[in-house]
Amino acid sequence: MNYNFDLKEDVLVLSLEGDLIGEDSGADLMDKISGYVQEGVRLCVVDISELRYINSSGIGVLITILTKFRNKGGEVCLLKPSESVQKLLIITKLNAIFSVVDTEEEAFENLKSA
């Protein structure tokens, strides 16, 4: 899995690409996210449009990201899930926990009003 961070208007945009299966890069990813949260970043968009596959460990990574931000009074929004990832979010009922949107603009609007 590959990932990139971009800070736009005090919102962390995390782009995930490949397979989110909670492998070794998961710990490194969480360390970096913790750093942003400790610096005061409270809002996060997770762009999952390029995720091919996600397993239960990957779901755990998303939930951990959400927990880290919500524990500091923040919020997380998932951006553009593929059809297969969207189905998984529905089956696991995570679509009721996460805000899921189709555009970055919509994500920013949701987060700023949260």
Rank of each mutant, 00 (worst) to 15 (best):
V100M: 12
E109W: 08
I33T: 04
D31N: 13
T92W: 10
L29F: 02
K80F: 05
I63S: 02
T92H: 12
E39T: 07
Y53P: 01
L16K: 04
E106N: 14
I21D: 12
D47M: 04
D102V: 05
L94C: 13
S49M: 10
A96Y: 12
N4F: 02
V37P: 02
D102H: 09
D28R: 12
L20Q: 03
L29H: 04
V13D: 00
I59P: 00
G18Q: 07
K93G: 10
A27I: 14
N110C: 10
E83S: 12
D19I: 04
A114H: 10
T103H: 05
K32E: 14
K87T: 08
G18F: 04
T92P: 01
V41W: 01
S34A: 14
S15C: 13
G40V: 01
K112H: 05
V11H: 00
A96C: 07
P81V: 09
A96M: 15
K8E: 09
L20Y: 02
D28L: 14
F108C: 04
V61G: 00
N110Y: 05
D102F: 08
C44Q: 01
I97M: 13
V13L: 15
I90R: 11
S99T: 14
N55K: 04
E50M: 09
C77W: 01
M1K: 03
L88A: 05
K87I: 08
F5D: 05
M30T: 07
M1A: 07
N71A: 14
I97G: 04
G18W: 09
K80N: 11
K80G: 02
V45R: 01
I21T: 13
E75S: 11
D24E: 15
Q86D: 15
A96D: 12
I63F: 02
N55R: 04
L111S: 05
E75G: 05
A114G: 07
D24C: 03
G22V: 03
I63H: 02
N4D: 12
E83D: 12
L7Y: 06
K68Q: 14
E83V: 09
I48F: 03
L51S: 09
V100Y: 01
N71R: 13
L20M: 13
D31K: 11
N4I: 07
D10H: 08
S84I: 15
L16C: 06
D10T: 11
G26M: 14
G60V: 14
T64P: 02
G40H: 02
V11C: 10
S49G: 15
L94S: 13
I21Y: 06
E9G: 04
S56P: 07
S99R: 11
F5G: 06
G18K: 05
A114N: 08
S82P: 03
L12P: 00
